[in-house]
């Protein structure tokens, strides 16, 4: 095979994974590889932001077109649950940053504890979203577009608001799950072979960046959907 030597698998027992890690041989050194991965990941995050920007555009356009429908729709959203979820995500962003810091300091125990808290927060967010928002609303017929069947619509265009709401939060929730999966994978690798340490924590760093993105998107969604009427 060609140029890459992935060489992250089991090796000298006792040595933690981050010490055994060897950078891919088409890079000149480990720093180059780390920078390359980080640059690549930032570019990927840019694409994610642009993906959501489409939804924000749709939001802005329909808000201008049907302001009353948006006011009517957002009254159905409970700031309490949105606020709790915001706090949950903010906390998780802090813990994921801490776990990266722990990797840099080679504090493996707290790295894992922080990661576990982050992952729990991710599921807590998803649970609140599902149990207190999606399911009750859906069962009341508050659904997107043609599926809308609640008899007490505040405005004929309220289904459009729900389309935007379900579209934006649904795609965001998908990102929460993807982020959680990434973090779980990091946790597994940390438990298995102490994969992350002062000289090598690329994957953890990028998973953390991804998690911050998920958080930042929510920071924009929360006021737009819950707070502005």
């Amino acid at each position: 095979m060609s140029t890459i030597d992935t060489s992250t698998k089991a090796g000298a027992p006792g040595e933690p994974g981050w010490k055994r890690y060897k950078f891919a041989n088409h890079f000149r050194n480990a720093e180059d590889e780390f920078d390359a991965c980080k640059l690549g990941f930032w570019l990927f995050l840019a694409t994610e932001v642009l993906l959501f920007s489409g939804l924000f555009c749709a939001y802005a356009m329909f808000r201008m077109k049907y302001p009353e429908a948006f006011a009517a729709g957002s009254h159905h959203l409970d700031v309490k649950y949105g606020g709790i979820n915001t706090l949950v995500l903010l906390l998780s962003s802090f813990t994921v940053a801490m776990s990266i810091r722990c990797a840099q300091l080679n504090n493996q125990k707290w790295l894992r504890i922080n990661l576990i808290i982050t992952i729990l927060c991710a599921f807590l967010f998803f649970f609140i979203k599902l149990a207190f928002e999606y399911i009750p609303k859906w069962s009341q017929g508050i659904r997107p577009g043609i599926l809308y069947s609640n008899p007490f619509a505040g405005h004929p265009q309220e289904p459009t608001w729900w389309s935007v709401y379900y579209g934006a939060t649904g795609i965001h929730a998908l990102h929460v799950l993807i982020g959680a999966a990434l973090l779980i994978w990091c946790l597994v690798r940390s438990f298995r072979s102490n994969q992350y340490g002062p000289t090598h924590y690329t994957m953890l760093e990028n998973a953390g960046l991804y998690w911050h993105l998920v958080d930042v998107i929510w920071i924009f969604l929360f006021p737009l959907l819950y707070l502005i009427h």
């Binding site: 932001v49 993906l51 959501f52 329909f62 599926l147």
Partner: peptide
């Protein structure tokens, strides 16, 4: 490309669920 991603996604939603965007 991400913008066409979200556009086509919304188009698919529109076609399948008739979300009215």
């Amino acid at each position: 490309t991400p913008v066409i991603g979200i556009t086509l996604l919304l188009l698919i939603f529109e076609r399948v669920f008739h979300v009215g965007i």
